[in-house]
């Protein structure tokens, strides 16, 4: 199966906060929600930890390394510094979908 996103593509972490729904197991840090980044590389497919934590059947999902500009997240960050984070596909949307 081809991953939905390719290296170099601009994406956005979905601006959602499922914490409001109760105790879930989320591997996308709160500070990245809604942030735009660039796909650095595809890291392969892994069973979704959000299901594994509850011993539910876990479908495999594509995992990406996504590169973010620190300054867009923390205004006090030094210019040019970046953040590289593993994010599952269902947490990402194409950034040009909503500029």
């Amino acid at each position: 199966m081809t991953p939905r996103f390719a290296p170099g593509q601009r994406v956005r972490v979905r601006p959602v906060w499922p914490e409001a729904l109760g105790r879930l197991h989320l591997r996308t840090p709160h500070y990245l929600r809604g942030q735009a980044g660039v796909i650095e590389r595809c890291l392969g497919r892994f069973p979704n930890p959000e299901d594994l934590a509850f011993r539910r059947p876990a479908a495999e999902r594509d995992l990406y390394h996504v590169l973010f500009d620190q300054r867009a997240i923390w205004p006090e960050a030094a210019p040019g510094d970046t953040l590289l984070v593993e994010i599952f596909e269902h947490w990402l949307e194409a950034a040009d979908a909503q500029a």
């Binding site: 591997r27 890291l43 030094a78 510094d81 970046t82 953040l83 590289l84 984070v85 593993e86 994010i87």
Partner: peptide
């Protein structure tokens, strides 16, 4: 130095 990019790797998932 400021011209060295600091790339923080948040190890959130599988690797």
């Amino acid at each position: 130095p400021p011209d060295v990019q600091v790339r923080v790797v948040d190890s959130t998932a599988e690797y």
